[in-house]
Computed example of a mutant assay.
Amino acid sequence: MSAERRSNPFGWIFLGFVVGVIATFGAILFLTAGLGGYDEGSDELRTAADDAAAAALNAGPVAASAPRKIEAPVVAQPVTTPTPVRETPPVDAQMADDAAAAGMTSRAAPDQPTN
């Protein structure tokens, strides 16, 4: 009779994983080898803005023309509406205690401007 030899499949799984990783990196290297790097310049299409910028750099000095006199337009005064005076609501002791407990108090005087 022949002796049946049992093997552990972990070695084959590990070997398959390593071969798969190497094959993946090889495929990525092969597919991206044709793309230019940073030093080689870009393969982007030139746009009209690129052409205009190149033309502006290569253009000679422009002859200075006399400045035009610009008159300011007459603007009508805006209509002012009176702003209503805002009344502050009365604050009772319970509301002040709740605001202080929640950290909603201000140490600045109410009429001082803040930056």
Rank of each mutant, 00 (worst) to 15 (best):
A3D: 13
S7G: 12
S7A: 11
P9E: 03
W12C: 15
W12M: 15
F14S: 09
F14C: 06
L15K: 13
G16V: 04
G16W: 06
V19E: 04
G20A: 07
G20F: 06
G20N: 03
I22F: 07
I22C: 11
A23Y: 06
A23N: 05
A23K: 03
T24Y: 06
T24N: 04
I28S: 00
L29Q: 10
L31I: 11
T32L: 09
T32R: 14
G36R: 15
G37N: 11
Y38A: 03
E40N: 11
G41E: 00
D43N: 15
E44M: 15
L45N: 13
T47G: 03
A48R: 05
D51E: 05
A52N: 09
A52S: 10
A52R: 06
A52D: 11
A52G: 09
A53I: 04
A54R: 07
A54Q: 11
A54F: 10
A55D: 02
N58R: 15
A59Y: 10
A59Q: 12
G60N: 13
P61L: 08
A66K: 14
A66C: 08
P67L: 14
P67K: 15
I70Y: 13
E71T: 03
V74D: 09
T81I: 13
P84A: 04
P84M: 03
R86L: 02
R86W: 01
E87P: 01
A93N: 02
A93L: 01
A93R: 03
D97F: 06
D97Y: 07
D98K: 08
D98T: 04
D98Y: 04
A99Q: 04
A102W: 08
A102S: 10
A102Y: 10
T105E: 01
T105S: 02
S106T: 01
R107I: 06
A108M: 14
A108F: 14
A109G: 09
A109C: 06
A109S: 09
P110M: 00
D111V: 06
Q112D: 13
